[in-house]
Amino acid sequence: MDSRSPSAEILIIDDEESIIDGCRQALEKTGYSVITTMDGTTGIRLAREKKPDLAFVDLKMPNCSGMDIIELLSKEIPELVLIVITGYASIVSAVEAMKKGAYDYLPKPFTPDQLRAVAQRGLEHRFLKIEATRLREEKEFMERNFITFVSHEMRSPLVTIQQYIESLKVIADDVLPPTAKDIIVRCEKRLENLQDLVEHWLDVSRIENGTFFKTREPLQLNSIIEKSIEELSPLCQRRELTLGADLKDSLPGILGDQESLLRVFTNIIGNATKYTSAGGTISVSTDFDEYYVIAKISDTGIGIPKEKLPFIFEPFYRVRGKEERQKGSGLGLTFSKKIIDAHEGKLEAYSKEGEGTTFVLKLPRVQAE
């Protein structure tokens, strides 16, 4: 039922019989279903049993504070819209009631038109809240099912296309002219990029639903960084970049997933190679403080414009520049941020256009007993 309609159910909790009767007549004349009580405890029971769409609550009740009723019902029935009606409370009391969960405030005395206007506004608010909740739940459902969709609807066709290309190369490689072979190579490269994109997005989805990694083990961050440097050194040599490290000795241990953290460092260092010109430097250093083991990855590349820096961890966002050597999926930094978040750490970026970028990774250290 659309809670904005006149058939909505309204509960009135007030200890004045004249207020109860006046509100009932004004609201029932509009078509609302009205439940009334002059007792606060009974009002709580009716709210629990009847689940009304909206409730008017008097702050000054003989056996139960209206403030307590509002605080209780706002927690127990969050979809219930609560409106304060009272003749003695100040604006301070009204503000306090709204802090505890009331939506609006109607001072006594009030006219039937004022009552109906506030009721209509409250029901509109309830409808919007319900719609927002529905849309959020729908979005979460779609995100939870995205992995299944990608797995079945995208991965299988990509594998089939790859098999067709391989078959074409075997069957017709000897008869194809160089231009056709070049087209096949381009197709393979595009297909590889698309497969990487799908895999990266699957990884991001798995991180969000908690299935990417389930266990953590004691690790030394320096050893993970050394492996990533070893992996990327040949690439840096080809691109005439200096890749150096200043790793602090006796670094405290961390708890984490080695493979995912290794990917974080290869992502960020690999990203630096795309935006750093030949002759430039990429440096990695480690340190620690009372709470975190800290790694910094700095480059002397083109930097990130100030207005783009807040968006670099968003999915598919890429800082395009003339120095960029190759295109990526736009998910590498998103993946890295979510992995560090999943480790209860922090990933931050600092940059100045034309001078370079520094990524700072902080992972909780294992505390000595």
Rank of each mutant, 00 (worst) to 15 (best):
P252I: 09
L73K: 03
P252G: 07
P52W: 13
F313N: 07
R320G: 09
E9F: 00
P107W: 07
K227P: 00
V81Y: 03
R318V: 13
T358G: 06
A89W: 05
G270C: 05
G122S: 03
G66E: 08
L11T: 04
Q163G: 06
H343R: 04
E324Q: 12
P107K: 04
D173Q: 14
R48N: 12
T37F: 12
L135N: 08
V198Y: 00
N145G: 14
E9C: 13
V92G: 05
L168Q: 10
T179M: 12
S151F: 05
F127Y: 14
C187A: 11
S223T: 06
G101Y: 11
K214E: 08
H200N: 11
Y292E: 11
T86H: 12
D113Q: 15
R320L: 15
D2K: 09
P107H: 03
S298W: 07
I91D: 04
I229N: 04
L176E: 03
F265G: 01
R365Y: 11
F265M: 04
S151N: 10
T30R: 14
D2Q: 05
R4I: 05
Y105A: 02
A89K: 07
V185T: 06
L27H: 03
V293C: 13
L59P: 08
L194N: 00
Q367K: 14
N63K: 12
D39G: 05
T358N: 13
L128M: 15
N145K: 14
D182E: 13
K108M: 06
Q120D: 09
L59M: 12
Y164S: 15
Y32H: 15
D289N: 15
F110W: 09
G279H: 07
K60P: 08
R206Y: 01
I147L: 13
M61L: 13
S233K: 12
D257I: 01
K214V: 01
A132G: 05
Y275E: 04
P6G: 14
Q258R: 09
S167H: 14
I44V: 15
